[in-house]
Design a protein around this nucleic acid. Structure first.
Lengths: 109, 109
DNA sequence: TCGTAATATTGCAATATTACGATATGAAAT
DNA sequence: ATTTCATATCGTAATATTGCAATATTACGA
């Protein structure tokens, strides 16, 4: 096979995995970090910064956008991609919620 | 292609991506959650709980273990896998550190 | 020692991801 | 209107991941 069996997991677990997937590639981690630092973030800047082809960056941006992590002006020549900080905080909260409820020790070795 | 270009990223970014990859599959998220709840966690219990084949679970456990997230008794018939809470906390701290330094807003749309 | 129970490894098929060149699109400038 | 610039999409090749059956390993008990 190769496809994930999604029907056997709870919604919370699927959400965490989906969130983690966004960060599971260094290009996307780097892109998010870069976007948060810039006043005006257009794709070509990111291309120069990260060192991947424009098509590849655009593809990663799509993944980030589909996760709801972008906002801004998507039209015209001077696109301004920005981090959706509210959504970003949702990610952080979901991770922390998962981490904080998954720390019980089961044995003392 | 298909392989990641790792040489163009900082160590922090590669670490975050590697950490996220562990959680990027619902089976591993579920396994970690399950392990943390049990007194004695042996693989067969997990197989029954998660609903994947024993070989598949074992494979996911290997990924989790290679990330340093397991500890316990790995020998004999009655293995006891436990969550390495110290390492787990390292993951949480790395994520939070990344999240907290990546929240600056770049435009006000 | 032999069998058994529990877990790991191997090999393979199906699918997903990553990367990039080529091309399309869309808005602004000329 | 045409060109230009910035970004998106398409097509495709390379690689990675997921899942499982079959088999190997390993420790314990009879």
């Amino acid at each position: 096979m190769g496809a994930s069996k999604l029907d056997i997991y709870t919604d919370q677990i699927i959400e965490i995995a989906a969130f983690a997937k966004v960060f599971a590639h260094p290009a996307r981690v780097a892109i998010l970090q870069y976007i948060s630092k810039q006043e005006n973030c257009i794709c070509n800047d990111i291309v120069d910064e990260i060192g991947l082809a424009q098509a590849t960056i655009s593809q990663h941006l799509k993944v980030i956008n589909e996760a709801g992590l972008l906002k801004g002006n998507f039209e015209g020549k001077s696109v301004c991609y920005c981090l959706n900080t509210i959504r970003f905080k949702e990610f952080q909260d979901a991770f922390n919620s998962y981490f904080n409820t998954t720390q019980t020790n089961c044995c003392s070795i």
